[in-house]
Structure formats: structure tokens, C-alpha cells
Nucleic acid binder design. Sequence first.
RNA 1: GGCGAGUUGGCGGAGUGGUUACGCAGCGGAUUGCAAAUCCGUGUACAGGAGUUCGAUUCUCCUACUCGCCUCCA
Length: 480
Amino acid sequence: MTTLKLHNTKTRKREVFEPIDRDNVRMYVCGPTVYDRAHLGNARPVIVFDVLYRLLRHIYRADHVTYVRNFTDVDDKINARSADSGRPIAEITQETTQWFLDDMAAVGALEPDHMPRATAYIPQMVTMIEDLIAKGHAYAAEGHVLFAVESYKDYGALSGRSVDDMIAGARVEVAPYKRNPMDFVLWKPSDADTPGWESPWGRGRPGWHIECSAMADELLWEKPLAEDRLSESAKERPHVFDIHGGGNDLMFPHHENEIAQSCCANETDSMANYWLHNEMLQVEGKKMSKSLGNFFTVRDLLDQGVPGEVIRFVMLSTHYRKPMDWTQKKREEAETTLKKWYRQIGLSTAVLDNDVHSGTTNALTEDLNTPEALTNCHALSNGGDYSQLRKSLYLLGLFDGNIPDWVKVKGFSDAETGLIRHFLNRRENARASRDFQLADKMRDGLADAGVLVKDTGAEPEFERLSNFNVNKLDELWGDV
RNA sequence: GGCGAGUUGGCGGAGUGGUUACGCAGCGGAUUGCAAAUCCGUGUACAGGAGUUCGAUUCUCCUACUCGCCUCCA
């Protein structure tokens, strides 16, 4: 059996992954708050955990893995967006959710088995909050319900902080109704203009952290339990699941709070056995931010003609636990490499079965070493093993069985293609009569207009360059 | 201030207690009328200091620098 090793944030070590139930490996990853287009940084955890999902399905088989990724569709940022735009909240969240799914599909991410929306799980959250109050871990105050961090002795264990340290360095606003400055909100009151649900504490809405605790437990424990899909080994570890993932900026406070809520409510010593965190994304060496002017969305890139596969390749070319820099140069290199690989695997008709080259799987099972997996793809490419290259790219999510259109399409309209063909025919005549001066002049002219000509084999090939200018092409026609 | 991650050749980026990363760029060659593409070959590295060791880029400590989190940003 394949041995999968993962770096567990809980222990800060690379550990052998042993699922609670190998017939149903369960993973939860924090999803987006749906109020705007996903920026490029949002795509990193999606792609990282998509690779893990694919790998788990490869090892344990597709129907033995359950992957949950939520949508946070109740949040103050959404409320603010609605107030600014005058649009209904439901319209914003539905539209943004679909955008997210479209954009992530474009970068090759499979849809998780469950994609719960927070607003559909309010009753479960209320129940969990009531439970926490009953067990002495939470208290109601002025319409709020707060989690009492001092009631949970392991608070801070994941991120390696003590409550005292946190208070010392805290810059949080200390609300008067908090017993401890680090206590965080489970439930907060809503006014008439804010989305709210009736609860024992009045009309209000959930805090952010409780969403994930409630939805993870519902979909990875209660639901499979009700459907009798949990093995005996799973039942021996009530409420605990295998993997919890997210960006490392969520480690504190979000994941810390999730653990506190889940462990206290469920009376367990653990929420998930393995915690995985991806590092952040930078752009041209700097943190992506609106003030620096280097902020852009996945959709922006796609609209600029950057293929989703190229975005994914660049993401995979850096290990997930290292900061990753998005640069124009990487984008270009990725495109060049992928074009070559797609051309090569197009020569193979190998069935996309589970027989994937060990160099690729061994890299991935060593804590998702995607750069090394890509190196192995280079080796397969250079070695001419296009069948195995095909399967490796499939496992990595860079190939879905069809060569992407952007590799095949040259990017010209029919009229432009006709014009270029005319040129090349005349140039071929010049070449045939060994008038290389004229032939080279024509090629230079086309290059200047943004058309790259390659004299390969019988018929010359041509492709569109980024500086393509149809007006220059027309001018050329006048010159000849 | 607290916690954490990192510093590898021109660039990107893995990995290892003693041996080739790999990719791009460069250089040389094949091929081509010339280019492009393709193929073959090839040089350059492990932040600094101390320690452990027969031997460290790889382990330990220190220093410098970079970055992230501590603020419901993935």
C-alpha cells in the first residue's frame, strides 16, 4: 500500500497519514466568503487541496474519499457590499458563488463532494452554541454569545500561542461584555437591516468560526452516521475526521477557534487528526494588495488569455508550504512547457487508469511535492514516455482527457488566417526561386505585425504573438 | 513585543550527512538557405560564523537579512 506523508501543523512534523477509516477518508477545507471575485491568492489553497483530493482518490479510490469545502454566505463583508451596491444579499452571494465555481473549474479543480452554504446550517450552529453554553464553554451577554477561551485548556495549541501571550500582543478591540479579551463571538445580534435568524439569544447571526465547526461535524460525522456509512473504527473516534486544510493565515484565530468549539462541544481531544496549511501567494515579490496595485483576480488572468492550466502549473511549481511568487516570467515558462507536453501526450492514446508512474506518485506522497512531480514529468517528456506523461498530468489535474483548445487554436480570425496564408504562399514562391532576401523580408514583416513564422516540414506554421496588430498586417499587404 | 516560515548556480525551484536535481536563460554542436522549432553536449550554488562528525549545503547553536501571522484577508 502506498505510504502518504503529510506535514501536520499540529505536530510541526511530517507524519505518515493513517486515515481513521480507509474506506471513507474525510477532509474539510475552509472555502471562500462570497462577496467578490476570487483573487489569485484564493486559488492557491483550492489547487493545493485539489491535488491532495485527487491523490487521496488515487490511493483510496474515488468513492472512498469525502471532501467538504464550505461557502461563507453570511458575513459583514457581504452585508457591506449589499449596502454599497443596493443589491440584495442573496443575489450577490449566488452570483459570487457561481463565479467561484467557474473560476476554480477553469484552473482544473474538481468540485468537492459537499459544498455547504453557511446559511443552510443555522440550526446546527444554534444547537452547537447551546451545547457550548450548557457545558460551560460559552456565555450570553448583551445579545451576543461568546466563547470563553479560558474554559479550554488547549486554546492556542495549534498555532503555538498561550492566551497570556495573545493578550499581551493583542490589538483587538476589547468589548465590555467580554470576560476575557480573547473571547470570540459565536453569535451576534442583527438589526432590522441585517440578515438574522431567531435564536434563544434573540434575532441574530452566527460568528464566522462556528460555521466551519457546525458544517464539518454535520457533513463528516452526523450525515454519514445517519446513512450508516461509518466503519467501526470511525465510530470509535466520534466527531473526529482526518484532514483539515486552509491557508496559514487562517491558523490563528480561525482554526484555533474551530478546534476550541468542536472539541468542547463534542468532548473530544481532537477535531481533525491532520492539519495542513498552505503558504501565501505573492506577486512579483510583494504581497498582493489593492494599495500596491498588484491585485488581480483569477478571472482577470483568464480574460487576459492566461489559460487555467498555466495558472495551475505555476501554482504547482512551488511547494505548497513555501511562499509562492506569481511572475510574468513563470507564466511564460509554464505556457511553453505545457504546450510541449500537450503536443507530446497528443501522440499517446493511453487509457487514463490508476497506473501512474511511480516518480510522480512518490513525489506527491512525500507531503505533496508537486515541483518534484513536475520534474518527473520533464523526465517522462525527455524520455519519450508520453503515455506515462499523459497519466501523470491527469493525476495532477493538468489534463482532463482533452488537449485544451488554446494549444491548438492559433488565435486568428478566418480573414486574418486567409491574409497570412496569402503572404506565406508568395513567400514560398520566393523561397522556391531562392530569393531569400525577399522571403526574409516578408518574414520580418510578419514578425513585426505579431505573426511568428516557422518553416517546418511541408507547410510553414505560424502563430500569434502578443504584439499582434492587424493594421500592420494590412499595411504589409499594401507593400507587396 | 509574541509566534512561525525562509535565505540553494543568471532566474525559478527540489533534495540529500559523503555521489547528476530539474526547468528557463547562457554557451558549444547537429539540423535549417538563414531563423524558429527540435535534438545532443556543457559551465556556474548551497547567507555568514561556530560546533558535532572521518566527512555538512544537509544536524545543533549564534548572527544578519527577508517574509507571514498576532487586525473575521486563502
